Amino acid sequence: MVNRPLPVINQDNRWHWEKLKEGIFVIQECAGCKTRRWPIAPVCYHCFSKEVELIQCEGIGTIDSWVVFHHSYYPYFADKLPYIVVQVKLAEGIRVTANLLNIDPSEVKIGMSVRLTYQQVLNSDVILPQFVPY
């Protein structure tokens, strides 16, 4: 069995991965200027503040961009081809990149409504955020 590539979990992002185990997707919001940011960063890219608040996302958004992979760059994905990777603009204003599940690649459209779902990685305690049509 080939293992799936897993995210690097460290002190700066552990809170994110722990919240995913609860089925909650959270993002950072600068306590000073209220800029929301994703991906996770140690300081605000707008005002450079280190003060942060966590905002729970509803997980509803629309597809801004997408690609269908027909070639596997990691052995894990070899039997999962083709698979879809989307960039989704969430209602909270940030963009998230993840897989799109439960749809034929020919049906994917820019502007399509999607929602977050959570997928347990086999042989791991990691939960990955994924999208499904909504």
Rank of each mutant, 00 (worst) to 15 (best):
E29H: 05
C47D: 03
N13P: 08
L101T: 06
P42N: 02
D79K: 10
I84L: 02
E92S: 05
C57E: 04
G59Y: 06
T35S: 15
T62R: 04
C33L: 01
L100A: 05
Q28I: 03
D104E: 12
G23M: 09
V132M: 12
I24S: 06
N3C: 07
G23N: 07
T35H: 15
F131A: 01
V132G: 05
S72D: 05
S106A: 10
P133H: 15
Y118S: 01
P5N: 09
F25T: 08
I110L: 08
W38D: 02
Y45T: 14
Y74G: 04
L100M: 11
N99L: 13
F77Y: 15
T62L: 02
N102W: 09
V8T: 07
I94V: 15
P75E: 09
Q119H: 06
Y76I: 07
K109C: 15
I60V: 15
E53K: 15
C30D: 05
Q119K: 13
P5K: 09
V67G: 00
K34C: 13
Q56K: 14
T117L: 01
V114C: 08
R4H: 04
D125I: 00
K109Y: 12
E51G: 03
L116M: 15
R14V: 09
C47I: 12
N10G: 10
D104F: 02
Q119L: 04
V2A: 07
Q130K: 03
P5R: 14
L128P: 00
F48M: 09
W66L: 02
L20V: 03
Q130L: 03
R4V: 00
K21M: 04
P133F: 15
L90D: 14
P7S: 04
V114W: 14
I110R: 00
V88T: 04
R115H: 14
